[in-house]
Nucleic acid binder design. Structure first.
Lengths: 205, 205
DNA sequence: TGCCGATGTGACTGGGTAGTCACATTAGGG
DNA sequence: CCCTAATGTGACTACCCAGTCACATCGGCA
């Protein structure tokens, strides 16, 4: 957590520090990000940074939390819509896409955080993933009992598949993924690959 | 490419270098891996390394190629089996799992390589992914025309989903993924989540 | 044995990093 | 206006790294 000094700063200065830190952690994973570069770009002294934050990790976790707080503002809306689980999930990833478009640097911060293999971060990541998994799985079980989702599936496996695809979609936002492609990929999870009884099928091409 | 000096080395020494380099690149992504640590652990001089390899990247690419060469020996078998696309895909990921169990360090090398965001590696990764994509997509189109796979799907989207799930499965090999779970996850992609016409469904639980 | 090219060496260069600390500056209350 | 506490500073320490190079050693051939 930042020291109180940081929050006493004139907002313009505080925001300048946040902005440059976001830029740095968007461009580099934690290990490779450089405090010296951040202070250099802000035009403040190295020592000042240590008036505001305990250390590099403290700053990093603050920035990561900033990024996730903003992201939550987007994805939250997905759970307010009316509709079945598929519509909610589509809305969720659409909101993620929108977030990545409107806040590309914050998006890169979350992406770098998620990829991080450092031990001190690994535990935090594990917790976040665990929470999401149990939320998702209870949501899924409801959809199973109400007969929308095939109840023969293992909810853990379903979460795994959605999480994997969602992670990759989010990784590629802004590169190869747009709204249409997003929906097509989600449809693969929804319908599966195998032909369905009663599916219309081209007989001759 | 290593210099000829490297291949003239007595096999025991050459293998010792490979072994320590594999360990280092399994534990650290390229940027963070340390030549000094490798030579320290091999008990050879820093300068000697530069008799064998052009630079750190040269050594790295050699090790990555070693890892993929071994991995190819495993996954190749998947394409020799008889069966539809789903059986081939299941065999493919099973072979990947086997590889990760029998060569955990080589597996970690490939994983770190794949995650790498460095520019000079990014292009190589892009090529590899592109090749896999086109192989997969032509394989998929065949399965579509022969009526095994729903031809209404976008092959690119299907590849995307499989690739994402496969990547995540491989990431988690040895942590939470075993053979049973692997099959359950692949079934999500095969059948999809939505209930199918004619699916048996529990009426009261 | 003597020679020479191939191979081995580790101190060194130049560069980067996080974090520290003695000192300088500022701001606000008395 | 002055004093004190809070805040700002940047040179500095201690560490890490890739890559170099003048020199040492080895191995095979004459």
């Amino acid at each position: 957590m930042p020291k109180t000094t940081f929050f006493n700063l004139p907002p313009a200065k505080r925001e300048a520090i946040e902005k440059e830190a976001i830029r740095e952690f968007a461009q580099n994973p934690f290990e490779h990000a450089s405090l010296s570069r951040i202070v250099g770009r802000c035009g403040i002294a190295k020592g000042s940074m240590y008036q505001y934050f305990e250390d590099k990790l403290d700053l990093y976790l603050y920035i990561v939390e900033l990024a996730y707080a903003e992201k939550r503002r987007y994805v939250r809306r997905a759970f307010e819509i009316e509709g079945d689980i598929f519509e909610v999930l589509r809305a969720y990833y659409r909101q993620s896409l929108l977030f990545s478009q409107e806040h590309p640097d914050l998006h890169k911060v979350t992406r770098n955080f998620w990829e991080s293999r450092a031990q001190h971060l690994h535990d935090t990541i594990g917790e976040v993933r665990g929470e999401r998994a149990s939320d998702f799985e209870s949501f899924l079980r409801k959809a199973m009992t109400s007969g929308i989702v095939n109840s023969g599936l293992n909810p853990e496996a379903v979460f795994f598949a959605y999480h994997a695809v969602g992670k990759q979609l989010i990784d590629q936002f802004g590169e190869t993924v747009d709204d249409k492609f997003l929906c097509q990929v989600l449809d693969v999870l929804k319908y599966g690959l195998m032909v369905r009884k009663g599916d219309a099928r081209c007989e001759d091409d």
